[in-house]
């Protein structure tokens, strides 16, 4: 056979195409082999997002702290002091800041992720690569901001003398669930936004509403016990409560809530990815 070494020769002398392009029908699965092939691109996309994030700013990476910090100050004044919302036995500032760091990461990821496809329209209409990388890159890139904001949290722990217990070992799992939930939501909204630009305008108040539906300014414990599991259907509820318990020891670790929220988060991730794969074939045509 004079395959020229180009086509993959599959033993029997029959040459299988390296690639077949045809209209795809039905649901598509994620092609992990392809993702692996393009892993260098993903690395560069994340690196780009990180590098350009605070380009030409004076404060640079400090912005990653300022945002949740100022929100925390405002919330502490209004909800902590004026409204007297309880904070599960730890000082309200650290109680709220912990949630605020998580929420800032989540909201930022979802926002960047949702707008990513539209923003990268030239890329999408000019070159092929696994499209999934577009909404996923900002979710990973923002982890750096998240880490920077956590440094201040560590400082606050020392100041307020609040120390994590052994549950802190569960933080990586919680972080994974957080990333999955953020990516899932991001992928879903990004795909939707490609076709319906209404998403961009909906996003602001969707996230605002979602924040108040999550235990950011208040603890889950102000809800009656029997509603906790229902409440955990909001994946951010279990994740934030879990983080706070693991890092601040506010309550006993809410295993059941985290389990439910984690399950919902994974469903959002898988659903978001599937919806994205389902619609990605048209991105270049509609964006």
């Amino acid at each position: 056979m004079s395959g020229g070494g180009l086509a993959t020769n599959t033993g029997g002398g029959e040459i299988k195409p390296y690639l077949v392009i045809k209209p795809k029908k039905g649901w598509q699965l994620i092609d992990f082999r392809e993702l692996k092939e393009y892993r260098d691109l993903f690395y560069f996309l994340v690196a780009r997002d990180v590098k350009i994030r605070y380009k030409q700013t004076v404060l640079g990476g400090l912005w990653a702290v300022i945002q949740p910090l100022f929100m925390m100050i405002v919330f502490t004044l209004f909800f902590g002091r004026l409204a007297g919302i309880p904070s599960d036995g730890v000082p309200y500032p650290i109680f709220n800041y912990t949630a605020m760091v998580i929420w800032t990461y989540f909201a930022g990821s979802v926002t960047f992720s949702s707008n990513s496809l539209v923003q990268e329209n030239t890329l999408i209409s000019k070159v092929y690569f696994p499209r999934l990388m577009v909404p996923l890159a900002p979710v990973i890139a923002l982890l750096l901001d998240f880490a920077i904001a956590l440094v201040l949290l560590a400082g606050m722990m020392i100041v307020f003398r609040v120390y994590p217990g052994p549950e802190a070992l569960l933080v990586p799992i919680l972080l994974l669930l957080l990333v999955l939930t953020a990516s899932g939501t991001g992928m879903f909204l990004a795909a939707l936004n490609a076709k319906y630009r209404d998403i961009r305008y909906t996003l602001t108040f969707l996230l605002q509403f979602w924040m108040f539906a999550s235990p950011v300014v208040y603890p889950a414990s102000i809800l009656p016990e029997k509603y906790h599991l229902l409440y955990a259907i909001n994946p951010m509820a279990g994740i934030i409560e879990g983080f706070r318990s693991a890092l601040l020891g506010t309550t006993a670790f809410p295993f059941l809530m985290v389990l439910i929220s984690g399950a919902v988060g994974i469903i959002i991730f898988v659903g978001g990815a599937l919806y994205f794969k389902q619609t990605e074939r048209n991105f270049a045509d509609i964006i």
Partner: peptide, 16 residues
């Protein structure tokens, strides 16, 4: 051919 957009019908086989 570059896989940017999908055909409505028909197919392409690419060996490389």
């Amino acid at each position: 051919l570059a896989r940017i957009t999908e055909p409505t019908s028909g197919s392409v086989e690419i060996y490389g």
